[in-house]
């Protein structure tokens, strides 16, 4: 029980007729990196705001670090770092002055805050620009200052809303490295994002949101099993009688589906990487193997397939 850092039961938020979050049961464990995924307007930001007590839930209960954000907001906010999707600073103040305000709001002493500010600026590579007004900062520098701001209070849990939004590829990779290092320090991280390969690279588990509901939760492999039915796709090019080859492939253990896609191309869906077995089956069935390729499960596929399916389901 106590290892759950975030725990919600039946959490809902309605804005008039709009149901932003619908009956959410979320459980995030100590020390994991959890990703919230979903299309625009699916309720990710609303969920985050309710976790912080910045928005009042219409129904349901929330526990963050064992505390209730509605009744113990000060304790929760002293332990949780939040980086909003659009993080803003006082432009006319320097980076250091901006952080110093946050440090004072957290009740840090003068020496302690000076020490921590130097530390986090150093860590985020902003020491050289610490005394420049934030107005002169680029988007990426502001984002890094946002992380510095979050780290200042030495949080147990960090919540980031679309942290890599608007960053160049190198900047985004840097960000993922930071998240990795936070995880190594034992900090629990909850983040929302649209950038699937990044989420896949950094998250232990993901939750897929749609219309305010979290419809799927689990590791990427688990989701792949559930959504794609099979996690691996083997693309194969072989010449020979179509029906014979198809049959030979289908008989392999672990193969879920075989599709002939014309032009001597086949797609085999399987629960594991069956390249070697598939090659042998083609050859022994008298086919000429021309090409073989495997695609590991990717969140992109899961995401695309999942939303394709549910939209079709909704139409039918």
């Amino acid at each position: 029980m106590s290892e759950l850092v975030i725990e919600t039961h039946g959490l809902s938020k309605r804005y008039g007729d709009v149901v932003a979050v619908d009956n959410l049961d979320l459980a995030v464990r100590q020390g994991e990196v959890f990703g919230l995924l979903g299309p625009n307007g699916s309720g990710k930001t609303t969920t985050i705001l309710m976790l912080l007590g910045l928005t009042e839930p219409t129904a349901g209960s929330v526990r963050v670090l064992g505390l209730d954000p509605a009744r113990q907001p000060l304790s929760v906010k002293a332990r949780v770092g939040y980086m909003p999707d659009e993080v803003g600073f006082y432009d006319e103040l320097t980076a250091r002055a901006n952080l110093s305000y946050i440090a004072r709001l957290n009740g840090l002493s003068r020496e302690e805050s000076a020490r921590r500010i130097d530390e986090v600026l150093e860590r985020m590579g902003l020491s050289a620009v610490a005394d420049r007004p934030v107005a002169t900062f680029s988007h990426g520098m502001r984002r890094r200052l946002g992380v510095a701001d979050v780290l200042l209070k030495q949080p147990q849990l960090i919540i980031m809303d679309e942290p890599t939004q608007g960053l160049d590829p190198e900047g985004a990779r840097g960000f993922l490295r930071i998240i990795h290092s936070l995880k190594e320090e034992g900090i629990t991280v909850l983040l929302s994002s649209h950038l699937l390969h990044q989420v896949q690279a950094v998250c232990d588990r993901v939750g897929l949101f749609r219309h305010g509901r979290m419809e799927l939760v689990g590791t990427v492999t688990e989701l792949a099993q559930r959504v794609l039915g099979s996690a691996y796709r083997i693309r194969l090019q072989a010449e020979g009688p179509v029906s014979t080859l198809t049959e030979a492939l289908q008989q392999l253990p672990g193969v879920v589906d075989v599709q002939h896609q014309g032009d001597s191309r086949y797609q085999v869906s399987a629960t594991s990487d069956l390249r070697a077995e598939a090659a042998r089956a083609v050859v022994s069935a008298g086919g000429r193997l021309l090409g073989l390729d495997v695609e590991a499960p990717s969140l992109d596929n899961i995401y695309a397939r999942y939303f394709e399916e549910v939209e079709h389901g909704a139409e039918a």
Partner: peptide
């Protein structure tokens, strides 16, 4: 300035 949510996320 988009500072409001950052400030109110403090204790």
């Amino acid at each position: 300035r988009r500072t409001i949510s950052r400030i109110l996320a403090q204790p």
